Computed example of a mutant assay.
Amino acid sequence: MEFTQVVQNRYSCKKFDGQPVEKAKLEAILEAGRLAPTAKNLQEQRIYVIQSEAILEKLDQVTPCRYNASTVIVVAFDKNNVFTYPGGQRDSGVEDATIVATHMLLAAENAGVDSCWVNFFNPEEMARLLNLPENEEVLMILDLGYAAEGFKALPAHSQRKPLAETVTYLE
């Protein structure tokens, strides 16, 4: 698929049919995340794939936003393995994990797999639920699967402000 089609067609699916994501497609999505750039190539992302019905049910206790997805990817990062930027106010953890997640989200669309970026949960509660190490911070979860019959992008999906409202050229 052409990249412009990937970014134009991708939307947040909020009703999945529960069908599993094929192994080859899931591996292509995970590989796209692995190839994502990170500050100083630290690769601090930690990716957890959840397909077990028992763990998916536990996940439902922490967020109402699984939407019946058959596969959920939890994107976290190792807080002890980040690059601290000049000034000491920010580090690379959140942005690098975001780049990784975005690569996977776009790869899913390219593979014909629907997705939804989810932040509607308490990250600390999610980390406890999954027994993640204390040095890891959960950034988001990525629901993956196939849209339920008849489900489409919400009407506002294609409404975007013109570039002139969001972009300024400094001279």
Results as ranks from 00 to 15, higher is better:
109 E>I: 06
137 E>V: 07
106 L>P: 02
130 L>N: 05
75 V>S: 10
78 D>I: 01
140 M>K: 00
71 T>E: 02
119 N>G: 14
90 R>Q: 13
141 I>Y: 12
139 L>R: 00
142 L>F: 08
77 F>Y: 14
67 Y>C: 09
106 L>M: 11
101 A>M: 14
121 F>T: 12
86 P>Q: 15
133 P>G: 12
108 A>N: 11
136 E>C: 15
91 D>N: 15
73 I>T: 03
65 C>W: 08
145 G>R: 08
126 M>E: 10
120 F>T: 13
133 P>E: 15
77 F>D: 01
130 L>S: 01
75 V>Y: 10
66 R>D: 03
84 T>V: 14
75 V>K: 07
74 V>I: 15
102 T>S: 14
136 E>W: 03
93 G>F: 02
122 N>Q: 13
69 A>M: 04
68 N>R: 11
62 V>M: 05
124 E>G: 06
81 N>W: 05
107 A>D: 00
131 N>F: 03
84 T>I: 15
83 F>V: 02
88 G>C: 05
86 P>V: 11
76 A>K: 10
118 V>M: 07
85 Y>C: 04
124 E>V: 11
130 L>I: 07
103 H>M: 06
96 D>N: 06
101 A>H: 06
104 M>C: 03
61 Q>W: 02
127 A>G: 14
129 L>H: 08
96 D>F: 00
66 R>C: 03
147 A>C: 11
78 D>H: 06
69 A>V: 04
66 R>Q: 01
128 R>D: 06
147 A>N: 12
105 L>Y: 11
146 Y>E: 05
137 E>G: 08
108 A>H: 07
116 C>G: 03
125 E>M: 09
